[in-house]
Design a protein around this nucleic acid. Sequence first.
DNA 1: GGTAAATTGATAATGAATATCAATTAAGGT
DNA 2: ACCTTAATTGATATTCATTATCAATTTACC
Lengths: 159, 159
Amino acid sequence: MNTLKKKRSKNERKRVLDSYLAKKQLKSTKQRDTIFDVFFNHTDDHISVEELYEIVKKRNPKIGFATVYRTLKLFKECGLAFERNFGDGRTRYEPVTFDGERHDHIICIDCGKIICFNNPEVQVLLQSLAKSNKFELSNYKLELYGNCDSSCESQDHSS
Amino acid sequence: MNTLKKKRSKNERKRVLDSYLAKKQLKSTKQRDTIFDVFFNHTDDHISVEELYEIVKKRNPKIGFATVYRTLKLFKECGLAFERNFGDGRTRYEPVTFDGERHDHIICIDCGKIICFNNPEVQVLLQSLAKSNKFELSNYKLELYGNCDSSCESQDHSS
DNA sequence: GGTAAATTGATAATGAATATCAATTAAGGT
DNA sequence: ACCTTAATTGATATTCATTATCAATTTACC
């Protein structure tokens, strides 16, 4: 089931990309296909451009990093990827998920424990909030910070 | 009333800064005072370092931009300023407000326009969400990304 | 296959942020 | 007020991520 779902959204993504390329009179290339595969099959969220470049290079060492930059920007333009900036000075990208598969995080300030949650109520509220400000919501970033109950001082979250 | 409030939080901030300087054995300087005044009296939220530097320079042309960078970092360290990264590659700072005046942002992907909003409903919902995950919520980060209605392609957010 | 236009990859260039370092300045003791 | 020490400043150089440039290559369409 999980596999099926993955495959389906991969096809959906491919369609989105292809239709965007057609619309903008851009071309389908091997490099874009490779980067597409690597990016959307990568399990980690929010990968940095350089990390992605390193993986892509293993598949095809001839691909330059400028192309990776350009392609991620392309994915972003057609709504397939989201750009994130944490505090470390490098841009990260994450796949935009379809049909409510998104999740957000609660992070414990003391021990670094991270809990994922998926709350439709939040999504509805934010949607309407954007609308009342005349925005078409396409994504959002939400992180909760606080303290978890358990005695959690001992853990570390430095990476 | 508004003026009173401003004055009070300014004094509170001054106290926070002074006690931090004392604790860390740092020194009080004219440059820091100038930047302090300009930053906390500036009406715009989330000012970029360069924007702030331009204003500071008018008061004291001898202050270098490195000092502005360093001082904003200092404000951040002692909890007086938030560091924010929107998508435009430059770091922005905003004063940390006291007594629940927090606000969040909607950012236009195309033109970079930023709208602030303060929605109690969101805060209540997130509070209960944290609680149901056995977390004591102490802060959160929320940014909405989307497209604003107006023909925003023509706008520019680079300066 | 041929042609026009988009794409690529290597490299140069940009731009924000930080490091360096000699000169200056603040703070505390005398 | 002076002295001493250590922090600070400002000018400049440097780093590092990202973007621009451009000749060579590749794609799409006829």
